[in-house]
Computed example of a mutant assay.
Amino acid sequence: MASTSYREITLNGLWKNNPGLVQLLGLCPLLGTSNSTVNALGLALASALVLICSNTAVSLVRGVVNTAVRLPAFVMIIAALTTCIELLMQAYTYELYQILGIFIPLITTNCVILGRADAFAAKNDPGRAAYDGLMMGLGFAAVLVSIGAIRELLGTGILFANMQLLFGPAAANWKITLFSDYQGFLLAILPPGAFIVLGLLIAGKNRIDSILAERAKARQPEVVVQSRRVRVTGVIE
């Protein structure tokens, strides 16, 4: 079986097979922690790190793990890595860890991570497995942070509030107040707001895909006509 190219892995992770917009996996953390940019970014980084490391580890041990215990072994690897991330967050970003709460340990059961371990990492070399984890992690993080930023902006009129929880005291001045006298839009930061914003992002992606498909279809007859001209010219000569 031919190995998947790095270009295809990139396109799949960021766009064609994006875990948040196409596969619709990991919706629990995607919707539950995306009421602000810092919360979304914190969980996105944690999930991406676990995804990269778990993909790499699964690829390394895929040849020595018995088929009967494959999935339990994958879960143990993911759980161990999640515990490491959890301890690191307790040590360096404790306040953010408290805010995210149960969603950090729940990375262990994130369908994105287990799905990529079984569907890709277990069938490819460590380099491609790690790169797949990186691209899928970035794709998931992009959706998560986008939802968090949109909800924070619509709900409070502010962007990048409380970034010091993740990046330390130096990030306290990163806050951008776009609307100083904004009264706030409560629905945006409530759970229904997450569903609405995610639905709009999915609709936007589907619309872009349809436009690209129409343009590709419109160019196809020109290619066919040109190829026929080349064949006819060759016959005459």
Rank of each mutant, 00 (worst) to 15 (best):
M1K: 12
A2N: 14
S3L: 09
S3N: 10
G20H: 02
L21V: 01
L25C: 05
L25P: 00
L30T: 00
T33F: 02
T33V: 06
S34L: 05
L41I: 11
L43N: 06
A44W: 02
A46P: 05
V50I: 15
C53Q: 09
C53S: 14
S59G: 08
S59R: 04
R62T: 07
R62I: 06
L71Y: 12
L71G: 08
A73S: 15
V75W: 11
V75T: 14
I78D: 01
I85V: 13
E86A: 12
L87W: 13
L88M: 13
Y92C: 11
T93S: 11
T93A: 12
E95I: 04
F103L: 01
I107C: 01
V112G: 03
I113W: 00
A117P: 01
P126K: 04
A129S: 07
M136A: 03
G139W: 00
F140S: 03
A142I: 03
L144N: 02
V145D: 00
E152R: 08
G157E: 10
I158Q: 09
I158L: 11
N162S: 12
N162D: 15
A170K: 12
K175R: 14
F179E: 13
F179Y: 14
A188E: 04
I196Q: 03
V197C: 06
L200V: 10
A203E: 11
G204E: 10
R207E: 14
R207V: 15
I208Q: 15
D209S: 14
S210C: 13
E214Y: 11
R219W: 09
R219M: 11
E222F: 12
V232M: 08
T233C: 07
